[in-house]
Simulated assay, not measured.
Amino acid sequence: MKKHFGTTLRRAFGLVCLTLSCFLQGAETITILTTTTDLADITRQITGELAEVSSLCDGREDPHALTVRPSFIVKARTAQVWVRVGMELELGWEPPILRDCRNRRIQVGSPAHIDVSEAILPLDVPQGEVTRDQGDIHAFGNPHYWLDPLNGRLAARFIAARLAKLYPEHEAAFNTNLARFLNALDARMFGEPLVNCAGGARLWQWLLAGTMDNELGKLPGAVKPGGWYAALRPYAGAPVATYHRSWIYLLQRFQLSLAGELEPKPGIPPSPKHLHQLSESFQAKGVRIILQEPFYSPKAAALLAARLDGLKVLVCANSTGGGAGAGSYLEMLDQVISALAGALKE
């Protein structure tokens, strides 16, 4: 009798332990490490409280030239998921971090290594051989794709899909959070009334097809576009200069013209000769704005602004956390687009 009771007790205890183990495993917080703050914020919107998301970049530095610190390797060692921009943005610092962390789970090619560039619409993809004489050219295209809101949308959908494969028990939560984020992004892009009327996905389709005006005319009522689209739409074709070729995605999405770059080649500081040529070119084109990241020297832009009447320098964060008013991915786009619209209106 005692032997039978002991066996039953052990079985019951084992069942309780197994149930508790499964519960704890299901309730475990996922540890996700991203390379940039923009990907961190987008990922955080998708996971909610299901994950602890951190970023290696803080948004205030040049992501091309991040210095590897021991703390990065420590973070990578315990990460369950790695999310990167890709397109060689992290080429100078990702390999040593992944090598030294010795975390097989997040190595390139593994399911938990998420390269978001696989899902976006790339620009500046080189044709032909790429050499160092061309400057800091990326063989797979320009990696600053997050500055196009559409690529932010594509990135969110891709991250959610990959996380759902890794953690299928959370797929419903990921999809719910994803829908909420996409709706918020679409409302910022086109205005909430228009999104409620036509749907965000349909508006993006019309924009990409070049049929927006025609389709809007078919909608019932008098709902007009708002948001970022309406803010910059009146200035389509306006020339904007930049310091680095970071802003091409943003400019193309809103049909603004890239009038020139202060860097003669990507990653090469401007020379006096190049600045003189730009001065003449900007005057001929009627350029009134230089858009620049906060981590580059402001001297060249200030010199051109002093030479040309009416030329304004906008120093804006191009990553989440890179400046005041850029606390989230959507807020970062808000402050850049608001600054551009305000400067173009003057």
Rank of each mutant, 00 (worst) to 15 (best):
M189D: 02
L219C: 13
L203A: 10
A222C: 14
A198Y: 05
C197Y: 13
L178G: 01
E215A: 09
A201Q: 15
P225M: 02
V195K: 02
L166T: 07
V195N: 02
W204V: 13
L203I: 14
L147I: 08
N175L: 06
A209D: 15
M189T: 09
W206R: 11
I159K: 00
M189N: 01
V223Y: 04
C197H: 15
L154P: 09
E192L: 11
G210Q: 13
A156I: 02
K224W: 08
P220D: 11
E215W: 10
T176M: 13
W206K: 10
A184N: 04
L178P: 00
G226A: 11
G227W: 01
A179D: 07
D186Q: 05
A172P: 13
A156H: 00
P193D: 07
T211A: 13
G227F: 01
A198M: 10
G199C: 03
G200A: 06
L207I: 12
P168Y: 08
F181G: 00
G210D: 14
M189E: 09
N214C: 14
L182A: 01
N214H: 15
D148V: 09
K224F: 09
N196Y: 12
F181L: 00
V223D: 07
N151A: 11
G200I: 01
H170K: 15
D186I: 00
P220S: 10
L178Y: 04
N177P: 03
R202V: 14
M212W: 07
L154V: 11
M212H: 04
R162W: 07
T211H: 13
G221Y: 11
L208K: 15
V223G: 04
A198P: 07
A161G: 12
L147Q: 02
L185T: 00
G191T: 06
P193T: 11
D213M: 11
L219H: 14
C197T: 15
F190R: 03
G200P: 05
L219E: 13
L154C: 14
T176D: 15
A172W: 14
T211P: 13
V195F: 09
